[in-house]
Design a protein around this nucleic acid. Structure first.
Lengths: 193, 193
DNA sequence: GGGTGCATGTAATGGGTTACATGATTCT
DNA sequence: AGAATCATGTAACCCATTACATGCACCC
């Protein structure tokens, strides 16, 4: 809800643009789906926090451009003044790892590897943003804060990748043991026949 | 839902115990409230994944002890075989920092400081768990996986704390500037009179 | 007597995702 | 011709937290 107000302080935008901008700027921090954005914009308009203007376009469909109002800025300020509550963690990968005894280690290796892929891509994207986007907006007063947020993501992701390396090494030795155990069982079965 | 099955592979437990155990073991990874645990246990019992036995206690109220069944183990295995989807991030602190221009820096400093407090405590708790709990259960086959999960938390939290330090330094210089700016405005007002 | 811990549960409420629907244009 | 992008929206559904309710016992 308040992400919308926050982004509208930077520039007036349509709901569609807000979706794109969220993904491009605060995507690694926060997410909102269109099923959330459009209804919320309506609510914000109803309470006077934003105003809507319809803009005709040639070729493309009409856009509804939203701008933040004084009341909207107050609402944003009020929200910013509320101390953020610590988030409840919910890491499915880690939970599955925790119950690792119930799955072959190879499966877990696959999960960690695709995590490395995914997070690696985000990390590269984040460093790109730091160099290109934020550097280009040096003049904008928000730049230092954007950098802090980007930096958080970088440090966290690097920590994840370091963990993944050390964990993969361990999982591979476990997987090796599981394979040799299976071998032994096969041999015994063979001998038993 | 499946956390319950997973923990029941370690030992049969009541719903109340499951709540406590979740907090103590996978609390930094996953969370479930009692409003979730009790209805889910009923559903799991209805589908034959767990069995319930009522246990009378002197003094204390009756407990319903749940045990996992063969069907429950299969269900757990099926869930473990599904690749975990990357989680959608939702970090309120970071989002508020991102819109930092709209708040006095002192407020942000307070937020980061209480994050340091909170996460610092979790980090200490996590290292304690690694040394005491997991070390004591060396014999249990799950131990290496528990260590991996604990290690993830440690590395991540350390990264957060490093980020917090560097961010606090930057926020403090910003806050200093804001204070001297306010000074200047006051002087001008004074001179103007 | 009152607070705290044990123990179980339900209902209201809120939040959010997914899927669906529409429709025009541009690119391959 | 068909896919993708622009653009907006709604409805169904799921999940989860919060708050409430109950009741006993132990400790201060």
């Amino acid at each position: 809800m308040e992400v919308l107000l926050g982004l509208l302080t930077i520039a007036p935008m349509s709901g569609y643009d807000l979706g794109l901008t969220i993904r491009a700027s605060v995507g690694h921090i926060w997410n909102e789906s269109y099923g959330q954005i459009y209804p919320n914009l309506k609510k914000l308009a109803a309470d006077g926090s934003v105003t809507a203007k319809t803009e005709r376009q040639k070729g493309k469909p009409d856009r509804t451009i939203y701008s933040i109002t004084k009341k909207g800025r107050e609402r944003l300020a009020k929200w910013l003044a509320v101390p953020p509550q610590p988030e409840i963690p919910r890491n499915e990968l880690l939970l599955k790892l925790f119950f690792g005894t119930q799955v072959p280690a190879d499966v877990l290796i696959g999960y960690v590897e695709s995590m490395v892929e995914g997070e690696g891509a985000v990390l590269r994207e984040l460093t790109r943003i730091e160099h290109e986007d934020i550097a280009q907006n040096q003049h904008y007063p928000g730049a230092p804060y954007w950098k802090m947020a980007a930096r958080f993501g970088q440090l966290e992701l690097k920590a994840h990748l370091r963990w993944a390396e050390e964990t993969l090494a361990e999982l591979r030795t476990i997987a090796g043991k599981q394979r040799s155990d299976a071998e032994t069982r096969k041999e015994k079965k063979h001998a038993g026949k």
